[in-house]
Amino acid sequence: MEALSYLKHFKEVAEHEIMHSGHVACPGCGAAIAMRLALKTLGRDTMLIIPACCWAVIDGPFPYSACSVPVYQTAFETASITAGAVRAGLDATGKKGINVVAWAGDGGTFDIGFGQLSACAERNDNIIYVCYDNEAYMNTGIQRSSATPWGAWTSTTPGSDYKKERKKNLLEIMAAHRIPYAASTTVAYPDDLVLKFRKAMSIEGFRLIHIFSPCPPGHKALEKNSILEARYAVESRVFPLYEVEDGTKYTLSMDPPTRPVADYLDLQGRFRHLNKKERSFIQQAVDEEWTRLMHRMRIDEAL
């Protein structure tokens, strides 16, 4: 994938709409854009399994739904296993060509659904697991999750008690399960997102797509800056876009023009309390992670 081609015209995005207006996502919601682009790619032969998360609310109150595909709402920790069960049911009734998609937030993925996620990945259940990651329990009032980055304010890590732990590296954990496909993407690069969904659809087994989705109220950012924030996350290497096939084959999707992490932090109120030293610590950590990722990409060559 040539990096710059994403930036000119988004040729891969389909025109038809599967998601409807009238959903109740906040203005500027990254997760809503993620769902819209994902459904455009997945098509109508898709079943969504949504646990407790923002999207459980966004989809709308009974008896309405924003997604004109079957949506099954399930308990917080059971998105992956329910999806696996739906697939088993489809297989038992001989129905083919249907995308079974678990669509969970970072809380349901990194924390509460983590055990089931690992189990499903280990069994290689034939589903696409999507984690739209807004880096906290946004829907219940911005509580910290294990996806919240170091240094961020949340309502459970307020003031000087800002989060002092690192964000879990989901893609590494899932790659360690040796699942056929794991990829990171974000809403600022629609072509990248679409191509990764397409690739996931072409593969059988457990596939995971990790989407960075800015949340204006939770990140204390301007609504109009959601895409900019996602773009800066990639350009500052806070959220690298790459894919891992069979747990070992790493491909970098985009080698962005480097941007200081400060540009990314400045867009968000949740990092406002950080002093210079703390900000440079984040920069250092990001640089280290990037170097580590670059080394990991080349491991196969060394072997």
């Binding site: 009238g22 989809d59 309405y64 004109s68």
Partner: peptide, 11 residues
């Protein structure tokens, strides 16, 4: 189960 879509909701 959902019986209609959210376009009912004029956001």
């Amino acid at each position: 189960a959902s019986m209609g879509d959210t376009t009912i909701n004029k956001t």
